[in-house]
Design a protein around this nucleic acid. Structure first.
Ligand SMILES: [Mn+2]
Ligand SMILES: [Mn+2]
Ligand SMILES: [Zn+2]
Ligand SMILES: [Zn+2]
Lengths: 144, 144
DNA sequence: TGTTCATTTGTAGTCATTACAAAATTACTT
DNA sequence: AAGTAATTTTGTAATGACTACAAATGAACA
């Protein structure tokens, strides 16, 4: 159920990855990206902030917002908008689908062939992003 | 480019449509659904409110919010969350794709075969909704 | 060390949405 | 038709996620 498109070996590789994308690897940026990389359940701003606060006691929620916005502008993470009241983040930028469970709130990855859909009447349109997601009940929450 | 999945002939048919879905057809509800039905550009709460205010001078934005929420709970419209700062609404509930132009902000329909994707590793998951959308530049905004 | 620049932080402000209760409208009963 | 109850609409206040902004901190460099 989990996509593994990238292959960092160690924490210190993340610094090089950020640098390669013109992002100076400060402590906060390293930790935030590391958290996103290790937690493939698509965290929210709040869950990132709550998780990192103990390790970085001075961390500000504004920094989390700013850093995620920076990451998005550099193209190394994506934001996921499924519910109107929550934004979730994903360090996996290779196109894949998402399943949102309306029971437990879990957000799961699944692969899909993103070239199947393009045989549609969008001639002359320039596509830069594609998003595909499902909603329903996951295996554990199955309503029955 | 526009999907036409439903076939109301006249305004007064909308009352029956609402009733069939356990929605008492008040003036506000009729007008709001009619507007959504006639404007397939996926309006926002604000554009609905602004458009209907002249005809219904007493209209409250709260009523627009409440009515849209009611329509969604009864399953006759859908909300579309693509950007984090705007929610758009669609009276067409039959699965179809959306193309969001990052130039002009336009949101266009396109058909797609929603059964193509389901050959994926989601065994045991109950799917209740599927959403597929693209972002990029429309024919008019084409960046070149 | 001193100077400059980039990053982080806390606070104040914004804005879309919601909660809530009063007002208005509709439905029902006598 | 008048009275009563239920539903719907409306306006205002409150909420809460996100942003703007400027001070504080920290890194880079001479
Ligand atoms: Mn993902
Ligand atoms: Mn549509
Ligand atoms: Zn679940
Ligand atoms: Zn356009």
């Amino acid at each position: 159920m989990i996509c593994n498109h990238y292959n960092f070996v160690k924490m210190d590789k993340i610094g090089a990855y950020l640098s390669k994308h013109e992002i100076k690897p400060s402590l906060q940026r390293l930790k935030i990206f590391e958290f996103l990389y290790n937690n493939k359940n698509h965290p929210t701003v709040d869950s990132i902030y709550t998780a990192l606060s103990p390790a970085i006691p001075t961390l500000s929620k504004t920094t989390v917002y700013n850093t995620l916005k920076l990451f998005i502008s550099k193209g190394i993470i994506r934001s996921i908008h499924i519910e109107d009241h929550e934004v979730r983040y994903d360090a996996d930028t290779i196109p894949h689908g998402h399943f949102k469970c309306i029971g437990c709130g879990g957000l799961f990855d699944f692969p899909f062939d993103h070239h199947l859909q393009l045989q549609t009447n969008l001639a002359g349109f320039q596509i830069t992003e594609e998003h595909f997601y499902l909603k329903g009940y996951c295996k554990l929450c199955g309503a029955n």
